[in-house]
Design a protein around this nucleic acid. Structure first.
Lengths: 206, 206
DNA sequence: AAAACCTTGTGATTTGATTCACAACTATTA
DNA sequence: TAATAGTTGTGAATCAAATCACAAGGTTTT
């Protein structure tokens, strides 16, 4: 899958467009102009048009964008025409909440494997998933085609756990641990750290 | 508190520096050069120096940065020399996990009020917090000095809940609902949506 | 069917962020 | 103490992203 030089910042906005288009579709809309979409997503219309034009001309001049058609194209660009199985490592408070979260499955992301190190948690069932011993990671990942991991272990275990995941074929990590992971080229990481976001917000408060 | 024109993208990196400096301090380090810090945070040394220079000269030429001194300055810049009380609205799976999360308190963010609309949840106690009826929002917020809200309600309730929060004095929202909030000038929003991050990652997966 | 209008897609321009290059200064070594 | 090495802080230059301006082409109205 050769990726031309599309700026990552452009790619990062596509899911946002997709989210809003899905809302519009559910409300029964069929066509939308970049101006109207701009209003909804809070991004200038010309930027939306330029972003989309990296991937082709999806609109109709004088009319706008056919919502279903544009959703189809965005889903295809983002490789969303498949179910993505995921492993979660770390089944504490947050891990359990994520396993129960319906939003992943609704968008084609399915947690199929949950791992933990705590004997009290191993063997328990959460939303239909039985938590396995993290020791089984290698075997479980080998016998699956999971590429994505959710990392919800404590900070001090995050780097070593990430290394193990990568060693066994994981290609993308959504990291909830409050540290910066160092991983080899070719493995993508996205970080979710609410404290960093809060500390950014407080800069502007009083 | 007059804010000069410091680019938001610069501000957004400061919490990251702070996080790493805290790690280093805990490991017993006392001084660090921008080159070493660069290695840890994955941001070019010259960018770190330039970012910091917006706020003053914190380093010593030929030596580097005194870690304690730099942490002090960053905490002060980010208004972290106080406890920030927070309200959380929506005490479902995710809300409960966030109330139990130790990381907020550890960094000076304390959930002091939890609101929900579900009679089965109202009155229950989670990690020492008794969940209140969301109807009491106005009274509770009036009698407190909470500026920050965590929004963990379902998507269809998020906008109206955010409007209510803002009407009663909330100035910053950490939004976990998968929608784009429309809020007045002067209210800051940060979004946490793992699905958007996953959809960004899958672009690069085969 | 002509005219008026609307909206996309994009080359050109502007704006903003990052990187370069190096002077200034401190610490360390000979 | 002089020379060498190390590191910051920052103007200047470069690079990248956002915005402008408008031609092209489709839609609607008269």
């Amino acid at each position: 899958m050769a990726k031309p030089n599309i700026p990552d910042i452009v790619v990062s906005r596509l899911p946002l467009y997709l989210q809003t288009l899905n809302h519009l579709l559910r409300e029964g809309e069929e066509v939308i102009s970049s101006d109207e979409l701009s209003e909804k997503v809070g991004i200038p219309a010309v930027q939306i048009r330029k972003d989309l034009s990296y991937f082709g001309g999806f609109g109709v001049k004088g009319k706008g964008y056919d919502i279903i058609h544009l959703i189809d194209n965005l889903r295809s660009i983002l490789n969303l025409n498949q179910i993505w199985p995921m492993v979660i490592v770390g089944v504490g408070n947050l891990g359990q909440a994520l396993i129960r979260y319906q939003g992943f499955a609704r968008h084609g992301f399915e947690i199929v494997l949950a791992l933990d190190i705590n004997p009290n948690i191993i063997g328990t069932e959460i939303a239909g998933i039985v938590v396995q011993d993290v020791e089984t990671m290698e075997a479980e990942l080998r016998s699956s085609d999971i590429s994505i991991a959710l990392l919800t272990v404590p900070a001090n275990a995050a780097q070593s756990t990430a290394d193990a995941l990568v060693a066994h074929g994981i290609k993308a990590i959504l990291n909830y641990a409050p540290i910066i992971l160092k991983l080899p080229e070719g493995v993508r990481v996205a970080n979710i750290d609410p404290v960093l976001k809060l500390e950014h917000l407080t800069y502007y408060l009083s």
